[in-house]
Design a protein around this nucleic acid. Structure first.
Lengths: 342, 342
DNA sequence: CTGTTAGCGCTTTCAG
DNA sequence: CTGAAAGCGCTAACAG
C-alpha cells in the first residue's frame, strides 16, 4: 500500500500558482477572490483531490464543525434512533458531524463527557434525555452553546425542545369525541412526570371544550406497562356505566387494555375505541386492530435542536456577542397516527 | 461571562518550572520523567485545570482518538441502540469518542461519510448494518483501519463480526428437543439472507443430532411479520400431524403465530411450544405467555468491533506495519432468553 | 532525565 | 484582490 502523502494547501497553492492565503480564501468562500483565480484554484483542488485537514482548521480557527450529542438514552428506547437521526441528518447537511456519548445518566460521566467535548472544541452541545423530564445538567455545560432535547432545566437557563404533551392529550381525546364518544376513560401513568401531568390536562381540556363533564371515576393510574393497562382496563370494564372509549397513556398500556377488552368478549373499536400514545411501531402497528396513537416529535426535536444550535453560533468568528435574550423553551406538536382502533 | 483564556501547555511548563517537552511527556505517559518532576507537573495541571486541546494533538501526532461509526440503521431498528452502546462504551473506556453518521444505506453518502471521517483523521472506522448481510463498502474505506459489524464483504478483505445464526438456530431447536418435542415446525423468513439460510441449517442440524427426521412439510416460508407468522401458523395447524412446537424466524412472526394458535383455542406452551428470535423486548416480554427467544449479540458486537479496531491500531506511531494476516471473520454467539412459551 | 526547537496544515492579519 | 508571514497548541527529535 503506497503511503499516499497528504496533499496540503501548499501543494494547491504551488499547483495553482497562487499563495496559500488565496487557497484558504476560496476554501472558506471569502468574497474577495477574483472569479478567475477561484476557478484555477478549484481546478487544482479537484485535480489533486485535496481535502483540508480538519484538525489544522480547528486549531487555527477554533471551530471544529462538530456537535456533541450527550444522552442517557441510547440503550433504553427505540425512540432514541429517531432523535439521533434528526440531529445527525440536519448536522450533516450543514457540514457538521456528531460526537455521540451515552452516559446512562451517570452525572460524573456526563461531566467528563462535557469536558471531552470541550477539549475537542465542539461548536455546540445537545443534551438529550430518553423521556420528557426535568433535568440537572453538569455545570460545565454552560461553557458551550447547548440545547436540551426532550428535557429542560427548571430555571430555563438553557434552550430546550420538548413534545407538546398537553396538545397531544387534547388531540387524542378530540379524536374520540369527534367519533361521537362521550364516556371516555383515561388510563394514566402513575409517576408524576410531565407527560403524566400534561396529557391528562389536555384530556380534561378537550372534554371541557365539548361540554362533557369530567368524570373522575373514568380515570385511573397504573404503571405504564401492558400489565398495568390490563389491570386498569379490567376494573374499568366493570364500571356501572362502561366507557365507550379509552385513551391510554401509552401504547404499552393500550396493549394490556386490548387484552382485557378481548377477554371480556368486547370488540375494538365497535364496543370500545382505544387510542394510545408513542406510536411504538412494534406494538401499535401489530396489534389487532392496528392501534391509533399519537406520535412524539422525535425526529423533529432532533432537527430543531441542531438548527437552533447552528443559529446561535457566532456567524463569523469573534464578533457579535449574542443578544443574551431568554433561552427558547419550545414545544413541538405530536401528530395523530390513525389506524383501526377508533 | 469572563472569557477564560485557554490554559496551554506553556502555562503549565512555566508554572511547574519545566520545559514544555516535559509536560508533554507526562501527558503522554512517556517513561523518561523523574517521579519528582512528574508530580510537580501533575500538580500544576490540576491547579490550573489544564486540559490539552485535541485539535493540536491531532495535528501534530496524526492521531485523533476518534473512531468513526457509519451505519445504515439508526432509524430502522431498536437493535441499533445496543450496538452503538457497546461500541461507544468500549471506546470511551479507551479514551476514544465516536463520530456517528447515519447514511440510510445511500452509497454516495457512505462514500462522503468515509471522506469526512478521513478528513477528521479518525483512528479507525466501524461500518455497521441494520441486519446481518453481505455488504458493499465504498472503496475509499480501505484507506482507514475498518471493521465491519453485522455484515461482511464477500472477499473477506475486511475484518467482520456477525451473529452466529447457525448455532442460534441449533440452540433454539435444542431447547425444544430437550423439552421432549419431536414434531418441531420452523417458520422461516422468505428472503435469502444469512439469517434465513443459517438458522434453518442450525435447526436441521439439531434435529439430525437427535435422530429426528427432517420433515419438510413442517417448515414454511413467509414474510417475517406478524401477518406472515399468522398465516403460516394457521396452515401448519391444519397439518394432519400437528407439530407440538414451533421455532419462528423472529419474534414478529411468533407474534402472529400466537394469534393463530389462540384462535385455534390452543394453549402455549401446553399444546404448542413457541420460540422466537431477536428478543425484541416490546414483543417478547409483553406477549402472553412471555416469549422464549434468542438474543442477538448486539452489544457484544459493538464491543468486539471497537476492541478489534483498537488492537489493530499501530501502538506507537510509525513502526510495526501490521503483519498483513487475513482479516478476522468472527461470529458471536446468540443467547437464549427463557420465558414461558416453551 | 530534560530544555529547546522545529514544524503539523491551516487561517488571518498586514502590506501591497 | 493577493502574497507573505505569523502563529494556533502540541509532539518529537535533538542536544545536552
Amino acid at each position: 500500500m503506497t503511503r499516499k502523502a497528504k496533499v496540503t494547501i501548499q501543494d494547491i497553492a504551488r499547483h495553482a500558482g497562487v499563495g496559500v492565503g488565496t487557497v484558504s480564501r476560496v476554501l472558506n468562500g471569502h468574497p474577495s477572490v477574483s472569479a478567475e483565480t477561484e476557478a484555477t484554484v478549484r481546478q487544482s483542488i479537484a485535480q489533486l483531490e485535496y481535502r483540508p485537514m480538519a484538525a489544522a482548521q480547528t486549531l487555527r480557527s477554533r471551530r471544529s464543525n462538530v456537535l456533541g450529542f450527550i444522552t442517557d438514552m441510547i440503550a433504553t428506547t427505540p425512540h432514541a434512533g429517531q432523535i439521533i437521526r434528526g440531529a445527525q441528518e440536519t448536522a450533516w447537511h450543514s457540514g457538521k458531524v456528531l460526537f455521540l456519548v451515552n452516559t446512562e445518566g451517570d452525572p460524573e460521566l456526563e461531566r467528563s463527557a462535557v469536558d471531552v467535548m470541550i477539549d475537542r472544541q465542539v461548536d455546540g452541545l445537545i443534551y438529550a434525555t430518553m423521556f420528557h423530564r426535568s433535568a440537572t445538567v453538569p455545570s460545565n455545560i454552560y461553557a458551550v452553546p447547548t440545547v436540551l432535547l426532550d428535557c429542560y432545566v427548571e430555571d430555563a437557563s438553557l434552550p430546550s425542545v420538548v413534545p407538546d404533551e398537553f396538545s397531544g392529550g387534547y388531540q387524542a381525546t378530540k379524536v374520540l369525541i369527534d367519533r361521537g364518544h362521550r364516556r371516555i376513560a383515561f388510563l394514566n401513568h402513575v409517576e408524576p412526570i410531565p407527560a403524566q401531568r400534561l396529557r391528562v390536562q389536555g384530556y380534561q381540556a378537550a372534554l371541557a371544550d365539548h361540554d362533557i363533564p369530567f368524570d373522575a371515576t373514568l380515570t385511573s393510574e397504573a404503571w405504564s406497562e401492558p400489565r398495568g393497562g390490563y389491570d386498569a382496563m379490567k376494573t374499568l370494564l366493570h364500571h356501572p356505566q362502561r366507557p365507550t372509549a379509552v385513551f391510554c397513556f401509552n401504547d404499552r398500556m393500550a396493549m394490556g387494555a386490548y387484552e382485557a377488552i378481548r377477554q371480556q368478549g368486547l370488540r375494538i373499536p365497535q364496543d370500545i375505541a382505544v387510542i394510545g400514545y408513542d406510536n411504538q411501531e412494534l406494538i401499535a402497528a401489530n396489534l389487532w386492530p392496528g392501534l391509533t396513537t399519537m406520535q412524539l416529535p422525535h425526529y423533529e426535536m432532533g432537527v430543531w435542536a441542531v438548527e437552533h444550535l447552528l443559529a446561535e453560533l457566532p456567524a463569523t468568528s469573534e464578533k457579535g456577542d449574542s443578544a443574551e435574550r431568554a433561552p427558547l423553551q419550545v414545544k413541538l406538536a405530536c401528530s395523530l397516527v390513525l389506524r383501526d382502533s377508533v
